[in-house]
């Protein structure tokens, strides 16, 4: 849609958007700032999933657990210890990354639908744990009254400051994901998503790469968890249900798989509409469900492709069934049983 605009102008527009983002607290009322901050938190959350699902093609329905792990680790540290915010962030991100690696290890042997089920299960276990381990997590009531953070002398009590901090973190996370996507790791993930046999035949360690991307994606989601705590000053299990995992999958698919701006655009549409179109209530999921199917069928690059912003490296599955078949194929166990992984077809030839 916007692909006719020359590249330099697009760059300037993007820069203007970032500047506008920084000026936003001076322009609008606190409610809008809060919505904008929520959108940014979900941008970071979906950026983590984008590496796993968009690049690696690994369908994870347990990403809210990573989000939650980051949030609860941060909340506990901020309540119990006087740690500086920077240290809290480092601990939460690393802790969540380890949690992600543990969940990711399951992708060593399973993929496709089975991996989706396992991650769904991991998410549910985590949710039940949050509800029942009352001494650690506060049970269903959660942990209220988390003190606002101080980032190297910068007091984040005011919503404006919290927003600016979240904006900065979002830019860092997006830039990090962009670097990963541009690097050899991003390419090997795309190769794994497209065809595991060629990935293996060209020296890529397929199982290890999958586990690592789970760790990185979880770490980024952990950062989103910390930001959520800073924004709300409260954590409760209701924010980390399977609904949130599905919301993240929606954001990635609608925004555009394996794109840099996809998570941000997806968040604007999905989270923004939750806030501003409350009257639609439950019809929202219906609309987004339909939108997701339409995007998978015709515009696999999501909003990024529709708007013509940047390159699209989404899976070129021309139909939903082809995409599902691809996801299912990636579930075929590796080489030892691969007698059927590559059908022995001989082309008929005159």
């Amino acid at each position: 849609m916007l692909s006719f605009v020359p590249k330099p102008i697009m760059r300037i527009a993007l820069l203007a958007l970032v500047v506008l983002g920084f000026l936003l607290p001076n322009l609008v009322e606190p409610y809008t700032i809060r919505v904008a901050a929520t959108i940014l938190v979900f941008t970071v959350f979906a950026t983590g999933l984008n590496l796993i699902l968009g690049f690696g093609g690994l369908l994870s329905f347990g990403h809210a657990a990573m989000f939650g792990a980051g949030a609860y680790i941060a909340a506990r540290l901020m309540l119990d210890t006087g740690m500086s915010l920077a240290l809290v962030i480092v601990c939460s991100v690393l802790g969540t990354a380890v949690f992600g690696l543990l969940v990711g290890i399951t992708s060593w042997r399973v993929g496709g639908d089975y991996l989706a089920l396992i991650t769904l299960g991991a998410g549910q276990i985590f949710y039940l744990y949050l509800n029942n381990a009352k001494e650690v997590t506060g049970g269903a009531t959660g942990l209220p009254g988390i003190p606002p953070g101080v980032f190297f002398g910068w007091d984040l009590t005011a919503i404006e400051n919290t927003y600016l901090f979240i904006l900065g973190a979002t830019i860092v996370a997006t830039a990090f994901a962009w670097l990963i996507g541009k690097s050899f790791l991003g390419r090997s993930l795309l190769a794994i998503r497209e065809d595991e046999v060629i990935a293996r035949a060209h020296g890529i360690n397929v199982p290890l790469t999958k586990v690592i991307v789970f760790g990185i994606g979880a770490g980024i989601a952990g950062l989103a968890g910390v930001l959520q705590v800073l924004l709300l000053g409260f954590v409760g299990p209701a924010s980390f249900t399977v609904d949130q995992s599905i919301l993240a999958v929606e954001i990635v698919l609608i925004g555009g798989m394996a794109t840099t701006l996809g998570p941000f655009l997806g968040s604007i549409l999905v989270i923004g509409s939750t806030e501003y179109l409350r009257s639609l209530a439950d019809y929202r999921s219906m609309i987004f469900g339909a939108l997701m199917v339409l995007i998978l069928l015709w515009k696999p690059g999501g909003l990024v492709q529709i708007l013509g912003l940047g390159e699209t490296r989404a899976s070129k599955a021309t139909s939903l069934s082809a995409l599902l078949a691809k996801l299912r194929r990636s579930g075929t166990p590796p080489s030892r049983h691969s007698a059927h992984a590559e059908p022995v077809t001989e082309e008929a030839r005159p």
Partner: peptide, 28 residues
């Protein structure tokens, strides 16, 4: 068997995977 979403250059770069070290992923 080519990666359908990648350019020719990126497809060939897949073959060079084992030349990279882990830190090249954040400092490419």
């Amino acid at each position: 068997r080519l990666c359908s979403s990648l350019t020719v250059r990126e497809n060939v770069l897949i073959g060079m995977h084992s030349r990279f070290k882990w830190y090249d992923s954040i400092l490419p």
